[in-house]
């Protein structure tokens, strides 16, 4: 499936406190409410700027810091379709797949704020419609592809009642 949207660009080492501050996440399980505060310490207008289906683009080590799953969930509820980064911190990466937020590891240096992107998750291709450049993403490990394909780990468990990953383990 191909998705089109606008790029919102951030730098390296965006931690989960920046994505959603601890002062909000402890108070509620209402992700729509949390989404209003997503990225606000770095860009107070972020939530207002994001259109449904846009992409968050970042540098190295995106999502470092805490284990809070509210980080990918708040991004998803703010309308972010996928996160593209040069690299991801392990916990965010796992949590994003588990909650069904696609994460794309690719060279993001040549994506500028406002560029329109077309992301093809299956093919691992990112077309920058503004510049015409095409990027290739690092493929997801088979286990993660399976979980993402099932719609996240909750949907996977709902379907199988347990881990059902034998075919995906090398």
């Amino acid at each position: 499936m191909k998705y089109q949207g606008k790029a919102h660009v951030f730098g390296d080492d965006i931690n989960t406190d920046y994505i959603i501050s601890g002062k909000y996440k402890f108070k509620t399980l209402d992700m729509k409410e949390l989404a209003k505060h997503v990225m606000e310490d770095l860009d107070p207008e972020f939530y207002e700027k994001v259109q449904d289906g846009d992409f968050l683009v970042a540098g190295r080590n995106f999502g470092c810091g805490s284990s809070r799953e509210q980080a990918p969930l708040a991004l998803k509820h703010a309308g972010i379709r996928a996160v593209l980064a040069r690299s991801f911190a392990r916990l965010f990466y796992r949590n994003a797949i588990n909650t069904g937020l696609p994460v794309v590891e690719c060279d993001t240096d040549e994506i500028s704020p406002g560029d329109r992107l077309e992301v093809d998750l299956e093919a691992g291709k990112i077309r920058n419609l503004t510049t015409g450049k095409v990027l290739t993403s690092k493929p997801l490990p088979p286990v993660m592809l399976k979980i993402l394909g099932d719609g996240g780990l909750a949907a996977h468990f709902l379907k199988y009642g347990d881990f059902h990953l034998t075919g995906e383990m090398e």
Partner: peptide, 29 residues
């Protein structure tokens, strides 16, 4: 379900942080 769960490694345990969905799966299975 806390990123600093790696603390217990000082006792020679393999211990790591996970998110809420991983923890829910761990509770069930």
């Amino acid at each position: 379900a806390d990123s600093h769960s790696c603390t217990y490694g000082a006792l020679n345990a393999f211990s790591t942080g996970v998110g809420s969905t991983d923890m829910a799966a761990a509770l069930i299975s």
